[in-house]
Amino acid sequence: MRVEYINPFVESAFNVLKEVLQGEVKRGELYLKSTSIPVMGVAAIVGLAGDVEGRVLFDMDKPTALKVASVMNGEELKVMDELVKATITELANMITAQAVTKLHELGFKFDLTPPAIFTGENMEVSDQDVEALIVPMETAQGKLEINVAIRERG
């Protein structure tokens, strides 16, 4: 996977998280995975289609999702309800869209699909023929992983 695709995601995740959570965000070391990867419990996914294709998965555990959604809504949310899911989905949407906007400016043309969210225990994700790059982000609310799998259309 070309590094040009990744930097905009790292940058926009950092910027958006900092803005919506109003706090410090630390970026962890990036790593590549080509086999199945466990998913922490709450995963929002946004698809990419155009010159390149793939998907971006935002993964975090349930307590982190609740804390992040609470900050974004300005109220304490204790259960994984529709509002929490909509909030995390929107977070994924904002980060992906900002990255897509940057990539667009660099000349890569593609669009994103409306996001979807999965919640559950013991989930894992596999991408055949596509390497996934993981960008870990540490926030005061907990750890989030941004898992990007993109390939050029051939």
């Binding site: 919506v20 929107e90 949407n93 904002m94 869209a97 900002q98 906007t101 667009h104 400016e105 994103l112």
Partner: peptide, 25 residues
């Protein structure tokens, strides 16, 4: 109101008659 701020998209919306364009967050 969109998380997408792509210039051509903004332009397209304004040409189509939108009065303003807000990029999220």
């Amino acid at each position: 109101i969109s998380a997408l701020g792509k210039q051509d998209l903004v332009k397209q919306a304004l040409v189509a008659g939108a009065k303003n364009y807000i990029v999220k967050p």
